[in-house]
């Protein structure tokens, strides 16, 4: 079998400083936290990140001063809090922030994944989002008319094939066929990237894929590396695998408000640990993780009892 399995440390070593990289994940779900933590341990610099809706991992990378430019469509830590490291970097202009909407940025990846130069859309017209992008002479937007002569105005979203993409999924086989249960907001960026890295909670047999090919959302033609990292999205959720850890997310949403507190958090949890298993130990280890196991029907940790019924 043509195996694409790599270990996390070697995979992250392949990403150079200044890399153009798209991230999957959305707020508190399927965030590639383990990959981002390893990038911070390896002290990556000047990253050029693209992400339709940002997730926890991206806020950590910005806070750790690994990011030079961020193109994104907004995002938060849901009710836990805000992306405060991103917000502050945006306000202090310590990163080159380019804001889009979720759909418009995804169109860049869709165009890239289809091999066409652009996708026309009316979204962003009239907004300050578009105005700011035009003011910054961002290469990705152009206002133009339909070539078919209906006189309609569109924003042409330029295709993007990022050098790298990183997503987290529950399962893949060694060949790189990827299974994701639930909504799949990051398929287009995965298919557009020149090199797709997928961290998975578990590598499964190709025999399972052969029995359930309809479950594959990203076939192996796109995949550069499969990296098995159990709980690789922790403390964010993976549908039908494990829930988000409310305690850790609450803690993170406190520490990301101030750079000093964030730095202490990173010192203790990320650079103070040598790998994801140690990070998980630091966060409470197996007893904490056991409390997060998802119910196979509900897809999250179902708590039974009067309080919730």
């Amino acid at each position: 079998m043509n195996s694409k399995v790599m270990n996390l440390i070697d995979a992250v070593r392949e990403i150079p400083d200044g890399a153009e990289i798209a991230f999957g994940g959305f707020a508190i779900t399927r965030s590639p936290v383990a990959f981002a933590c390893e990038m911070i341990r390896q002290n990556k610099k000047d990253l050029n990140i693209y992400q339709p809706i940002v997730c926890m991992a991206t806020d950590m990378l910005v806070g750790a001063k690994s990011v030079k430019k961020l193109s994104y469509g907004g995002g938060s830590l849901d009710r836990f809090g805000r992306m405060e490291r991103i917000n502050e970097a945006f306000e202090n202009k310590t990163i080159d922030a380019r804001e889009f909407s979720g759909l418009s940025l995804t169109y860049r990846f869709l165009a890239g994944s289809l091999g066409v130069p652009y996708i026309p859309t009316k979204t962003l017209l009239g907004t300050d989002i578009l105005k700011n992008l035009l003011d910054k002479k961002d290469e990705s937007v152009m206002i133009s008319e339909s070539p078919y002569g209906d006189g309609e105005k569109y924003v042409f979203m330029k295709a993007l094939n990022p050098d790298y993409a990183v997503i987290h999924a529950p399962y893949a086989d060694e060949k790189g066929n990827v299974l994701i249960d639930g909504p799949v907001w990051d398929l287009e960026l995965a298919k557009a990237a020149k090199k797709l890295y997928v961290t998975v909670d578990q590598i499964i047999s190709n025999e399972y894929i052969k029995m359930h090919p309809e479950k594959v959302v990203i076939p192996n033609v796109y995949t550069h590396a499969v990296i098995e990292v159990p709980y690789g999205a922790y403390p964010t959720a993976v549908y039908k695998m494990y829930d988000y850890d409310s305690d850790m997310l609450t803690k993170y949403a406190k520490t990301n408000k101030k750079q000093e507190d964030f730095d202490l958090f990173i010192d203790e949890y990320v650079t103070g640990t040598s790998n994801h298993n140690e990070f998980l130990e630091k966060c409470g280890g197996i007893s904490a993780l056991n409390k997060l196991k998802a119910d196979p029907v509900y897809g999250y940790k179902k708590v039974w009892g009067d309080k919730y019924e």
Binding site: S76, S101, G102, L103
Partner: peptide, 11 residues
Amino acid sequence: RHINGSGGAAD
């Protein structure tokens, strides 16, 4: 002061 962003709202 940057707070959130569009998400899908603009769309």
